[in-house]
Amino acid sequence: MVQRGSKVRILRPESYWFQDVGTVASVDQSGIKYPVIVRFEKVNYSGINTNNFAEDELVEVEA
C-alpha cells in the first residue's frame, strides 16, 4: 500500500514516465480505477508533471 509522500517507480509501459521515480501526491479511497496521483520532476510533452496510476502499476522504492 503506497501512501502520500512515498517514492514510487512506474511500471506502466505506455506511460511517459515508465521506469521513472515520482512522489505520491495523494491516494483516493473512493474506489476509482486509478486512485494514486504521482508527481514527477520532469514534465511530459504537454507540460504536465502529474498523472494517475493504479496501485499495481507502482512499486515503492522509498517510504
Results as ranks from 00 to 15, higher is better:
M1V: 12
M1E: 08
M1Q: 13
M1I: 11
M1N: 13
M1R: 15
V2S: 04
V2I: 15
V2L: 14
V2Y: 14
V2A: 05
V2M: 11
V2H: 07
Q3N: 08
Q3P: 05
Q3F: 00
Q3L: 07
Q3H: 11
Q3G: 09
Q3A: 11
R4G: 06
R4K: 13
R4M: 12
R4D: 06
G5W: 00
G5P: 02
G5A: 02
G5N: 05
G5H: 02
G5L: 00
G5V: 02
G5E: 03
G5K: 01
G5Y: 00
G5D: 05
G5Q: 02
S6Q: 10
S6T: 12
S6R: 07
K7M: 11
K7Y: 05
K7H: 09
K7C: 12
K7A: 06
K7S: 06
V8W: 00
V8I: 01
V8N: 01
V8T: 02
V8C: 07
V8G: 02
V8P: 01
V8Q: 01
V8S: 01
R9V: 08
R9A: 04
R9S: 04
I10T: 01
I10D: 02
I10A: 01
I10Y: 02
I10L: 04
I10K: 01
I10W: 01
I10E: 02
I10N: 02
L11E: 06
L11I: 09
L11P: 02
L11M: 11
L11D: 04
L11N: 05
L11K: 05
L11S: 04
L11R: 03
R12K: 08
R12C: 08
R12M: 05
R12W: 07
R12Q: 07
R12G: 04
R12Y: 04
R12L: 07
R12A: 09
R12D: 09
P13W: 08
P13H: 07
P13D: 05
P13E: 13
E14M: 05
E14I: 04
E14Q: 09
E14N: 12
S15L: 04
S15A: 02
S15M: 04
S15N: 03
S15V: 02
S15E: 05
S15C: 10
S15Y: 03
Y16G: 04
Y16V: 05
Y16P: 08
Y16A: 04
W17K: 00
W17Y: 03
W17I: 03
W17A: 00
W17G: 01
F18H: 06
F18K: 00
F18C: 07
F18V: 03
F18S: 04
F18M: 01
F18Q: 04
Q19R: 08
Q19L: 14
Q19Y: 08
Q19S: 07
Q19W: 10
Q19V: 06
Q19H: 09
Q19P: 02
D20Y: 09
D20W: 08
D20L: 10
D20V: 09
V21M: 04
V21Y: 06
V21S: 01
G22Q: 06
G22W: 05
G22N: 02
G22R: 01
G22D: 04
G22C: 06
T23F: 09
T23Q: 05
T23L: 08
T23V: 13
T23R: 03
T23S: 04
T23W: 09
T23C: 12
V24W: 00
V24C: 07
V24G: 03
V24M: 02
V24P: 01
V24R: 00
V24S: 01
V24D: 01
V24K: 00
V24A: 02
A25I: 15
A25D: 14
A25C: 15
A25G: 04
A25K: 09
A25W: 08
A25P: 00
S26Y: 14
S26Q: 10
S26C: 15
S26L: 10
S26I: 07
S26G: 13
V27P: 01
V27D: 01
V27I: 14
V27E: 02
V27Y: 10
V27L: 07
D28T: 06
D28G: 07
D28C: 12
D28S: 10
D28N: 09
D28W: 01
D28I: 09
D28R: 06
Q29F: 12
Q29D: 12
Q29Y: 13
Q29T: 14
Q29L: 13
Q29G: 11
S30D: 05
S30R: 09
S30I: 05
S30H: 07
S30M: 06
S30K: 06
S30W: 05
S30G: 10
G31P: 06
G31S: 09
G31W: 07
G31Q: 12
G31D: 12
G31I: 09
I32T: 13
I32L: 10
I32M: 10
I32W: 03
I32R: 08
I32C: 12
I32D: 10
K33G: 08
K33W: 05
K33N: 08
K33T: 09
Y34E: 05
Y34H: 09
P35G: 08
P35D: 06
P35Q: 07
P35V: 11
P35A: 08
P35F: 11
V36T: 00
V36L: 04
V36K: 00
V36I: 15
V36S: 00
I37K: 15
I37G: 04
I37Y: 10
I37E: 14
I37T: 15
I37V: 14
I37N: 12
V38K: 01
V38A: 00
V38G: 00
V38D: 02
V38C: 05
V38M: 00
R39K: 12
R39T: 13
R39Y: 12
R39L: 11
R39M: 13
R39D: 07
F40E: 03
F40L: 01
F40I: 04
F40D: 03
F40R: 02
F40A: 02
F40M: 01
F40K: 03
E41H: 07
E41S: 08
E41F: 04
E41Q: 08
E41P: 06
K42Y: 08
K42W: 07
K42A: 06
K42M: 06
K42I: 07
K42G: 06
K42F: 07
V43S: 14
V43F: 15
V43A: 14
V43G: 10
V43P: 15
V43N: 12
V43T: 11
V43I: 09
V43L: 10
N44C: 11
N44Q: 06
N44G: 05
N44K: 06
N44H: 12
N44W: 09
N44P: 06
N44M: 05
N44E: 07
N44I: 04
N44L: 05
N44Y: 07
Y45E: 15
Y45S: 15
Y45P: 15
Y45T: 15
Y45N: 15
Y45I: 13
Y45M: 15
S46N: 14
S46Q: 15
G47P: 05
G47Y: 05
G47Q: 04
G47K: 03
G47L: 00
G47E: 06
G47R: 00
I48F: 10
I48S: 14
N49W: 08
N49C: 14
N49V: 06
N49Y: 09
N49G: 06
N49S: 09
N49D: 11
T50E: 13
T50C: 15
T50M: 11
T50N: 04
T50W: 15
T50D: 05
T50P: 00
T50H: 11
N51C: 15
N51W: 15
N51R: 03
N51K: 05
N51H: 13
N51D: 15
N51G: 15
N51F: 10
N52P: 08
N52D: 07
N52F: 09
N52T: 08
N52I: 05
N52R: 12
F53M: 02
F53W: 02
F53H: 01
F53S: 02
F53L: 01
A54D: 08
A54E: 07
A54S: 10
E55L: 15
E55G: 06
E55N: 10
E55A: 13
E55T: 12
E55F: 15
D56G: 07
D56C: 12
D56S: 11
D56F: 12
D56K: 06
D56I: 08
D56A: 09
D56T: 09
E57M: 04
E57P: 04
E57D: 06
E57K: 02
E57L: 04
E57N: 02
E57Y: 03
L58G: 01
L58R: 01
L58I: 12
L58C: 07
V59G: 07
V59T: 08
V59I: 13
V59M: 13
V59W: 08
V59R: 08
V59L: 12
V59H: 07
E60G: 08
E60R: 11
E60C: 12
E60M: 14
E60L: 15
E60Y: 10
E60F: 11
E60S: 10
V61Y: 06
V61R: 02
V61C: 08
E62F: 12
E62I: 10
E62H: 12
E62Q: 11
E62V: 11
E62D: 12
A63I: 12
A63G: 12
A63V: 13
A63N: 12
A63P: 13
A63W: 11
A63T: 12
